[in-house]
């Protein structure tokens, strides 16, 4: 009886291994293709076959050294600066907002939460023109600062997950601290925050990603100022009609270079990401 159960389980697991392997192939396939393209020597944009006929490192070398037309290293630096700044700002804003909605009780709490809920439903890029002119009015366009503001400006609206996480921390802990004379400010920084490592890392991770992938907002804000582009917009220039033939393989190389740090970050932080979103997402 037990043996047959075991056999059944082994068969079941074998079946799952097969499925997982197949799925992994499907998922890794485009990634592998991207990597192969980045090492392809044949210059053109499009090949009707998957595996390059000749291999080379030149795409990477050119990308990093030939900066006269596409200044990839600079764009990478810009993105890194923006990503770090905006992830710090976003994290602070999100955590404070979440804390307020989770822990504090005030008159406007529920109306504010409802307003925030519906605000997220208007297509974002429609407001770009307005945002651009607002930034222009305060003399901030075409600067990295404005980009940080744009990425973090609406960030507080994504407080749900963090609030869900805070909700799982028993309120008794706060009460105990407050009886000891701690202010709410102290409760947040000294008690809640140290207990919230997963959600802090989750927030940092998600907000760090945005500048690397956005190409719409940055194009409206930076316009013709090439020196202030981020990698995403910069890479996009490489596949415009006039450039795609010559630069497609370099575009792939650039994409791989973006993906590497993000992948490493994700692998390293996966544990926290999962536990952060688990506790937070469970209550939304």
């Amino acid at each position: 009886m037990i043996k047959s159960m075991k056999a059944k389980r082994t068969i079941g697991n074998a079946f799952i291994y097969v499925i997982l392997t197949l799925l992994s192939i499907v998922w890794v396939f485009p990634v592998a293709w991207l990597v192969m393209q980045s090492f392809r020597k044949e210059g053109s944009a499009f090949t009707p076959y998957f595996i390059p006929k000749q291999w080379t490192f030149d795409n990477y070398i050119n990308l990093l050294t030939d900066t006269s037309k596409f200044n990839f290293p600079r764009w990478f630096g810009n993105t890194l600066v923006v990503a770090i700044a905006s992830c710090i700002l976003t994290t602070v804003l999100v955590l404070l907002t979440a804390y307020a909605f989770s822990r504090l009780r005030f008159k406007m709490r529920r109306p504010m939460m409802n307003v925030i809920l519906i605000l997220g439903m208007f297509p974002g890029f429609m407001s770009m023109i307005a945002i651009y002119h607002i930034l222009k009015a305060i003399n901030l366009t075409q600067s990295l600062v404005s980009l940080v503001l744009v990425y973090s400006g609406g960030a507080a609206m994504g407080y749900y997950i963090a609030k869900g996480f805070f909700d799982t921390i028993p309120y008794a802990i706060d009460e105990a601290a407050m009886i000891d004379g701690a202010t709410k400010n102290q409760v947040f920084w000294k008690i809640i925050l140290p207990m919230s490592k997963p959600i802090v890392i989750y927030t940092i991770l998600t907000s760090f990603l945005t500048p690397w992938v956005d190409f719409i907002f940055v194009s409206v804000i930076m316009k013709d100022n090439y020196d202030k582009y981020t990698v995403a917009l910069g890479l996009f220039q490489m596949i415009s009609r006039e450039n795609v033939q010559k630069y497609f393989t370099q575009f792939c190389a650039g994409a791989v270079l973006i993906a590497i740090p993000i992948t490493l970050l994700f692998i390293k932080m996966q544990k926290y990401y999962v536990s952060g979103v688990t506790a937070g997402g469970a209550k939304g």
Partner: peptide, 19 residues
Amino acid sequence: LAVVGEPDAKTKYLEDPAV
């Protein structure tokens, strides 16, 4: 000099004529 290709000129221009 700044980079805006001929095909995109109109779109980029109308985004903000002043700049």
